[in-house]
């Protein structure tokens, strides 16, 4: 018992000694919680080099476009996208590997909120960028179109995709058919893609991405690959029920 009390005291003291995070430019009262829960109380700087672009108002709260570009930081091992005021705050985790730390996609917004991207550099520091998106809300608690009309069963896991020239490199855009149910709509359990990976014919790993419930229905992702891949790209993924995604995206014929 004494040992337990001792350990407990040690843990509490350890917690108390963790430096508080720097004050949030958005003044969100939720920021200390977000920092503790998703960034492990690790060192954080608010950094303009992490660009997060989204419209000021969510015209469609079920598909709010967000673009993240952390390439000004140099090498980035991981990017986490967080929405403070969503009932499910973590939208995705992105491991850029050979791809640039740049991605764009759409997410569900429950109410006006800071939308943040935290990019982790090799020194273990999280660099945070963000923008405020206002909205009429409700994006996380409404069924998607293909859930409402039942058509999702006919398209589950289908992939559309194409490589585009992007400067001297390639951009991949893919759309993956999936209802991406949040589990917050009555009677519809959480059902969402939870992992995607991308490699080329030579086996180069471009990126791995962990996706969560707030990613929009039938998500569209843009990835900047940084280089031209060797041959075709192979996208592999999985949802939380074990359904697999597997698609090959060929180079565009000139």
């Amino acid at each position: 018992m004494r040992a337990l009390v001792f350990s407990l005291t040690f843990i509490l003291a350890g917690t108390a000694h963790a430096a508080p995070p720097p004050p949030d430019p958005f003044g969100s009262g939720l920021w200390p919680d977000v920092h503790a829960e998703f960034l492990g109380r690790e060192p954080v700087v608010f950094d303009d080099r992490v660009k997060v672009v989204a419209p000021a108002f969510a015209e469609d709260p079920m598909a709010v476009p967000v673009s993240v570009d952390a390439s000004a930081l140099g090498a980035v091992s991981r990017v986490v996208v967080l929405v403070d005021r969503n009932p499910i705050r973590k939208v995705l985790e992105f491991f850029p590997q050979a791809a640039r730390p740049v991605l764009a996609f759409r997410f569900k917004l429950q109410q006006g909120s800071p939308v943040r991207a935290a990019a982790r550099t090799a020194d273990g520091v999280w660099h945070l960028g963000g923008t405020w998106v206002d909205g009429s809300g409700g994006g996380c608690t409404l069924p998607g179109g293909t859930r409402s009309d039942g058509s999702w069963v006919r398209t589950l896991g289908q992939v559309q995709g194409r490589m585009f020239d992007h400067g001297d490199a390639s951009r991949l855009r893919v759309r993956i058919m999936h209802p991406m149910d949040t589990g917050l709509v009555s009677g519809i359990p959480a059902f969402y893609l939870d992992e995607l990976q991308l490699r080329d014919d030579a086996g180069t790993a471009y990126m791995r991405i962990l996706t969560f419930e707030p990613v929009s229905e039938n998500p569209v992702f843009s990835f900047d690959l940084g280089t031209r891949p060797a041959g075709s790209l192979h996208l592999q993924g999985r949802d939380n029920n074990g359904n697999l995604v597997a698609a090959r995206i060929d180079q565009q014929k000139p």
Partner: peptide, 20 residues
């Protein structure tokens, strides 16, 4: 753009790919 772009984008992305 929010209302209309997804239709243009889906067209540009082409037909569903066969499984790899």
């Amino acid at each position: 753009v929010t209302h209309l772009y997804p239709r243009y984008e889906q067209k540009a992305l082409g037909d569903p790919l066969s499984r790899d």
